[in-house]
Lab assay of single mutants.
Amino acid sequence: MTEYKLVVVGAGGVGKSALTIQLIQNHFVDEYDPTIEDSYRKQVVIDGETCLLDILDTAGQEEYSAMRDQYMRTGEGFLCVFAINNTKSFEDIHHYREQIKRVKDSEDVPMVLVGNKCDLPSRTVDTKQAQDLARSYGIPFIETSAKTRQGVDDAFYTLVREIRKHKEKMSKDGKKKKKKSKTKCVIM
């Protein structure tokens, strides 16, 4: 069974824990209790493949930012979460993405942009803004509501699919490099 290491990042209060708990335990946590770091595991079937999701729910508070490099190193894919009623959390996505790329030393890291709290009427981040940002990053965008469960499975499952595509691409690139290195030079 394939294991996928997913990391949920975003500013404090955007609903990272609520999304994760909704996926794992099928219930909505409405009281806000700032996370330092929590880890969850769940076995699911995605596109006919049974897999184990190892999900790291991270601290959004700035005082825990020193811990970010460590979990970013171990993560295979990242859910970059903002709240649709919090423009600052949307603007912060850029910083999370840049930090992930720096730590992973790669421009090509599996990510999904997630606009959470889409059940709320007080939207300050337009869907088109988020779609445009995701398009500019070359990553999928999904709106979710941890409260109603809308888009929750889709967000995590899409990230797994992005990781699969990335692994497939990397193995193809690896095979191309191996083929090239088999060419021999004969000096007579």
Score class of each variant (00 low, 15 high):
63 E>F: 03
64 Y>H: 10
64 Y>N: 15
65 S>L: 04
65 S>E: 12
66 A>T: 10
66 A>N: 10
66 A>Q: 09
66 A>L: 07
67 M>C: 12
67 M>A: 07
68 R>D: 15
68 R>Y: 08
68 R>C: 12
68 R>A: 14
69 D>N: 06
69 D>E: 09
69 D>C: 02
69 D>A: 04
69 D>W: 02
70 Q>K: 05
70 Q>G: 07
70 Q>P: 12
70 Q>R: 05
71 Y>F: 12
72 M>N: 07
73 R>E: 13
73 R>S: 13
74 T>M: 13
74 T>E: 15
75 G>V: 14
75 G>F: 05
75 G>T: 12
75 G>M: 09
75 G>Y: 11
75 G>W: 03
75 G>H: 06
75 G>A: 15
76 E>F: 11
76 E>T: 13
76 E>G: 04
76 E>K: 03
77 G>M: 10
77 G>T: 02
77 G>Q: 01
77 G>D: 00
79 L>R: 00
80 C>W: 03
80 C>R: 00
80 C>A: 03
81 V>Y: 02
81 V>P: 03
81 V>T: 07
83 A>Y: 01
83 A>L: 02
84 I>D: 15
84 I>C: 14
86 N>P: 01
86 N>L: 01
87 T>V: 06
88 K>L: 06
88 K>R: 09
89 S>R: 03
90 F>E: 09
91 E>V: 05
92 D>G: 05
93 I>F: 11
94 H>A: 14
95 H>V: 03
95 H>W: 10
95 H>G: 06
96 Y>A: 07
97 R>A: 14
97 R>M: 15
99 Q>L: 13
99 Q>V: 11
100 I>T: 01
101 K>A: 08
101 K>C: 06
102 R>N: 05
102 R>G: 06
103 V>G: 04
103 V>I: 13
103 V>M: 09
103 V>Q: 07
105 D>K: 08
105 D>T: 04
106 S>R: 07
106 S>K: 06
106 S>A: 09
106 S>E: 12
107 E>C: 11
107 E>D: 13
108 D>G: 06
108 D>L: 04
108 D>Y: 07
108 D>T: 06
108 D>I: 04
109 V>P: 04
109 V>D: 01
110 P>L: 02
111 M>G: 01
111 M>E: 00
112 V>K: 00
112 V>C: 03
112 V>H: 01
113 L>I: 15
113 L>T: 02
115 G>R: 03
115 G>H: 05
115 G>I: 13
116 N>R: 00
116 N>T: 15
117 K>W: 15
117 K>C: 15
117 K>R: 12
117 K>I: 15
118 C>M: 10
118 C>Y: 10
118 C>F: 08
118 C>P: 06
118 C>W: 07
118 C>I: 10
118 C>E: 08
119 D>R: 03
119 D>I: 02
119 D>C: 05
120 L>M: 10
120 L>Q: 07
120 L>I: 05
120 L>G: 14
120 L>C: 13
120 L>W: 08
121 P>F: 09
121 P>N: 11
122 S>Q: 10
122 S>F: 06
123 R>S: 14
123 R>Q: 13
123 R>N: 14
124 T>M: 10
124 T>S: 11
124 T>A: 12
124 T>H: 11
125 V>G: 12
125 V>E: 12
126 D>P: 05
126 D>E: 09
126 D>C: 08
